[in-house]
Design a protein around this nucleic acid. Structure first.
Length: 472
RNA sequence: GCGCCCAUCGUCUAGCGGUCCAGGACGUCGCCCUUUCACGGCGAAAACACGGGUUCGAGUCCCGUUGGGCGCGCCA
């Protein structure tokens, strides 16, 4: 079997949304699985809508997701000359022809079609008409002379055999009147020239596959292997909108998801491997294949993504998670501010707090939020619950505890011993002593284990915070 | 409207004619663990859209209905 070549071909008219990200992932996975090549092509033939900002956003998104492509990204627009060349060849063989129908005529056809309840189809009025009848001064488009009878069959790796009647496929435009290639033509020529063996894309392209097949035939080329994957819908089953999650992948970064978790989640959306839910990067590449992709559309579920992200965070080593957090700081809410105060001492504290923090966070945002007590300045602002704990007898415990703690060795074990002894002596439950400490130390009613907080914060800062609340 | 695709718990899915009174995961609800919150453990509720066939036997095959999606540009 010849080496596999896949590609991801986004159009730079916006950010890399979640559906595109999954398409890219599947192509990447498939290529990596079989030792093939994963190419990237920017479909920027629409000069009106393509922007460099969008190209940058897409590349950035792919890099963040960890989907590295082979070689340089190809600009489709820059290949326009080659596309025209292909059209010339089709013109020469009669597989294509010039059409002088005006936009107004096309509108009219559309109108008529709608009135008669028929689909809009170009009526082929210039198919066999002599070019000498062309209206003067009008630049023609070039259309494919498509088969009008018979059928075109797509043998799809996920959709199976799909048959289209050729009468339903009209003579599509290959070259616009301004001489620029259309998408339909450009994809075919580029995929062919780039040696793409497998076209894995959204099933919104399924009918395009039939049209493109006709172009391949007209050019005398072999079609690639198709794999049209179902689309991702929003939580309510409707098309993804910004409200539902048609966000750029950078939004997921800002929400604190780990690339590995997002990859795992996305892979399992539409694809399965028995009952297995969690995959390491290696496991994913080893297991992925086209046959196990389902044919029905799926809904995006943040709850499951979040759960999965929590698993990945907990499974990550403390060092790796710490590095991920720091690297993501610029994108997290409140992150840049934290980054500024992150001197070597704070870094060490944050790193030391990771084990206690990561058990309690499902995203990096939550992780950062849990670490807030490290960056708070004395006297701490208290939230309602913390204030409540302190007011209901908490201060007395703090006042009594203060000398005992300051006398203790500053280690987890020694501090715990001191507090437990105090609780036993006074007959208080450990919880009723730990909670006031937590309130004074973190300003909240929830935090990592209290002795961890004490040691991470250090003797001086801890005693200061306790003293702040013991008195008042 | 026409064409194509799809249809198992709320969600993601396993299931490829009998081992399914349908399994796993998320979510939900209990209980346990516990210095808080989490994590973890145990348990519960929860689905084969509907109607016809085929077959000794159908979640699994066929047809129809209903519902949903996608496509129908000199956009990609």
């Amino acid at each position: 079997m010849s080496p596999i070549v896949t590609r991801f071909a986004p159009s730079p008219t916006g950010f890399l949304h979640i559906g595109g990200a999954r398409t890219a992932l599947f192509n990447w996975l498939y290529a990596r699985r079989f030792g093939g090549t994963f190419l990237l092509r920017i479909e920027d033939t629409d000069r009106e809508r393509s922007t460099q900002a969008a190209v940058d956003a897409i590349l950035d998104g792919l890099k963040w997701l960890g989907l590295d492509w082979d070689g340089e990204a190809v600009s489709q627009f820059e290949r326009a000359a080659r596309h025209r060349e292909a059209v010339e060849a089709m013109l020469a063989t009669g597989a294509a022809y010039r059409c002088w129908a005006s936009p107004a005529e096309l509108d009219e056809m559309r109108e008529t079609a709608r009135r008669e309840g028929k689909p809009m189809r170009y009526d082929g009025r210039w198919r066999d008409r002599d070019p000498s009848e062309a209206p003067p001064g009008v630049a023609p488009v070039i259309r494919l002379r498509a088969a009008q009878e018979g059928e075109t069959v797509i043998d799809d790796r996920v959709q199976g055999k799909v048959t289209f009647a050729n009468k339903d496929l009209d003579d599509l435009v290959l070259l616009r009147s301004d001489g620029n290639p259309t998408y339909m033509l450009a994809v075919v020529v580029d995929d062919h020239d780039m040696g793409v063996t497998h076209v894995i894309r959204g099933d919104d392209h399924l009918t395009n596959a039939a049209r493109q097949t006709q172009i391949y035939r007209a050019l005398g080329w072999e079609t690639p292997i198709w794999a049209h994957i179902p689309l991702i819908h929003g939580a309510d089953g409707a098309k993804l909108s910004k409200r539902h999650g048609a966000l750029g992948v950078e939004a997921y970064r800002a929400m604190g998801y780990l690339p590995a978790a997002l990859r795992n989640y996305l892979a399992r959306l539409g694809w399965s491997f028995g009952d297995k839910e969690f995959f390491t990067g290696e496991e994913l590449t080893a297991a992925f294949d086209l046959d196990a992709i389902g044919r029905s559309p799926s809904r995006f579920d943040f709850a499951k993504l979040e759960n999965m992200n929590g698993h990945f965070m907990r499974a990550a080593s403390d060092d790796a998670l710490f590095e991920s957090l720091v690297a993501t700081l610029p994108y997290l809410p409140g992150g840049p501010a934290v980054l500024e105060t992150l001197d070597s001492r704070k870094r060490a504290q944050l790193r030391a707090a990771i084990p206690g923090l990561k058990e309690r966070a499902k995203t990096l945002v939550e992780l950062l939020d849990g670490a807030a007590f490290l960056f708070a300045a004395r006297p701490l602002a208290l939230d309602d619950k913390a204030r409540d704990i302190l007011q209901k007898g908490g201060r007395a415990h703090l006042a009594a505890l203060l000398p005992k703690l300051s006398a203790a060795e500053w280690s987890h074990e020694a501090l715990e011993a001191a507090v437990r002894t105090y609780a036993e002596e006074t007959g208080a439950k450990l919880g009723s002593v730990a909670q006031p400490l937590r309130a004074a130390l973190t300003g909240r009613s929830t935090s990592p284990g209290i002795f961890d907080v004490l040691t991470v914060l250090g003797r001086e800062e801890s005693l200061g915070r306790i003293a702040d609340q013991a008195g008042a």
